Amino acid sequence: MSDDDTMQKKMELDPNDPMDQALVWVSRIATGEADANALAEFERWRDSDARHEKALNEARRLWVMLGEPLEAQYAPVMASLPASAAQRRQARPRRRWRRPALATAAALLLAVTLGGQWQRDWRFDQTTGTGEQRTIALADGSTMWLNTGSAADVQVDGNRRHIRLARGEAYFDVAHDPQHPFTVDAGSSQVMVLGTAFGVRREGEDVVVTVQRGKVQVASADAPAVFVTADEQVRVHPGAAPHIEAVSAEQMLSWRTGRLQFENRRIGEVLDELKRYDRRLVLVSYPQAGQQRVSSIVDLARLDEWYDTLEQSLPVKVTRIGPIVWIHAS
């Protein structure tokens, strides 16, 4: 089975469970799969049982994280149905748009979309999308691995070796050059090395540096510089003293091998980490996620297989519908 086939695999749903039915309808409507006939069927299902309306409200709450109101997806199609099929829902006033107004709105939407794309990706030298990783050979012989959802500017030449990590996470295997220190600017912190291997991750205002080989200097504007050596990790938070602890660098930086390693970690923490790599919306409604712990190795190319294992080993159900993975108590 290919990676795309794995991502598209759907779990069998309970045809008698109103929540499962509601999630199917929300997915079909929000993704544009439902035509006019299907929407008429949806209206009949919705009105046939009070439990369906309640389940639909819950399904909407899950879907709202995608940023699209449900009615905005199906109301235009419902308006084209015969009155007998559409009259179950209260009529909503609709504005009439002249063609010039539509053209202006389309141009504005395009400008906003392109502006957002530029703001997020195009203005940086190197970027990765969700679930994507890239390996970049630098001009000085060093190598940079860019992890999921990351962006960086690169200035490496004969006179300067400087990286600005704008967001996300990167790993560096730095070629030794005593005359030209290698620096990584990560917002509130700056990392300086001569030749070593280390990872840098931005987590909100925090910067986390993990050293696999050699020694690095980590400096920030409001704290003294600290030195971090192999199998150590430092977390820098604005206004706080840097915190250094011993870690397994191989485990912490395993993402560049296509796998994540977790040892005695809370399930909630593991799922939060996997959300960074899954292009779908991962929702967790499992009260024990903050208490129960697991040790596991996750193949990033086979996330669904790991979700299946989780379902087999814990009292949880994993429901996949369209771009949603919902992990909840069984």
Results as ranks from 00 to 15, higher is better:
residue 4 D to Y: 06
residue 6 T to G: 07
residue 8 Q to L: 15
residue 10 K to T: 12
residue 13 L to A: 13
residue 14 D to S: 12
residue 15 P to V: 09
residue 15 P to A: 12
residue 27 S to I: 02
residue 27 S to W: 05
residue 29 I to V: 14
residue 31 T to S: 14
residue 31 T to C: 07
residue 33 E to T: 11
residue 33 E to A: 15
residue 34 A to V: 08
residue 34 A to F: 09
residue 35 D to L: 01
residue 39 L to M: 10
residue 39 L to H: 02
residue 43 E to V: 15
residue 43 E to G: 06
residue 43 E to A: 15
residue 50 A to L: 06
residue 57 N to V: 04
residue 57 N to K: 13
residue 58 E to D: 11
residue 59 A to T: 10
residue 66 L to C: 03
residue 76 P to M: 07
residue 80 S to R: 13
residue 80 S to D: 09
residue 83 A to E: 14
residue 87 Q to T: 05
residue 88 R to N: 13
residue 91 A to G: 02
residue 92 R to K: 13
residue 93 P to S: 07
residue 93 P to A: 08
residue 93 P to K: 08
residue 93 P to C: 05
residue 95 R to N: 03
residue 97 W to M: 14
residue 98 R to E: 12
residue 98 R to M: 12
residue 100 P to I: 07
residue 100 P to N: 08
residue 100 P to C: 08
residue 100 P to W: 13
residue 104 T to N: 02
residue 108 L to H: 00
residue 123 R to V: 11
residue 126 Q to C: 04
residue 131 G to F: 05
residue 137 A to P: 11
residue 142 S to K: 02
residue 142 S to T: 07
residue 147 N to W: 03
residue 149 G to H: 01
residue 152 A to R: 05
residue 157 D to N: 15
residue 159 N to M: 05
residue 159 N to Q: 14
residue 160 R to N: 11
residue 160 R to C: 04
residue 160 R to D: 06
residue 163 I to K: 06
residue 166 A to I: 11
residue 168 G to A: 06
residue 168 G to L: 03
residue 172 F to W: 06
residue 178 P to A: 15
residue 181 P to D: 05
residue 182 F to Y: 09
residue 189 S to H: 03
residue 190 Q to D: 05
residue 191 V to F: 01
residue 192 M to P: 00
residue 192 M to Y: 00
residue 192 M to N: 09
residue 200 V to E: 05
residue 204 G to E: 09
residue 206 D to F: 00
residue 209 V to C: 03
residue 212 Q to V: 03
residue 213 R to Y: 01
residue 215 K to G: 01
residue 215 K to F: 00
residue 216 V to C: 08
residue 216 V to R: 08
residue 220 S to Y: 00
residue 220 S to H: 00
residue 227 F to R: 12
residue 232 E to N: 09
residue 232 E to V: 04
residue 235 R to D: 01
residue 236 V to I: 07
residue 237 H to W: 00
residue 240 A to I: 00
residue 241 A to S: 13
residue 243 H to Q: 14
residue 250 E to C: 01
residue 250 E to M: 07
residue 253 L to Q: 11
residue 255 W to S: 08
residue 256 R to Q: 15
residue 258 G to V: 01
residue 271 L to T: 07
residue 288 Q to C: 01
residue 288 Q to E: 15
residue 293 R to I: 07
residue 294 V to Q: 04
residue 300 L to A: 02
residue 300 L to F: 02
residue 301 A to W: 00
residue 302 R to I: 03
residue 304 D to L: 00
residue 307 Y to G: 07
residue 309 T to R: 12
residue 312 Q to A: 15
residue 315 P to S: 11
residue 317 K to A: 15
residue 321 I to N: 13
residue 321 I to A: 14
residue 321 I to Y: 10
residue 327 I to T: 06
residue 328 H to S: 14
residue 329 A to Q: 15
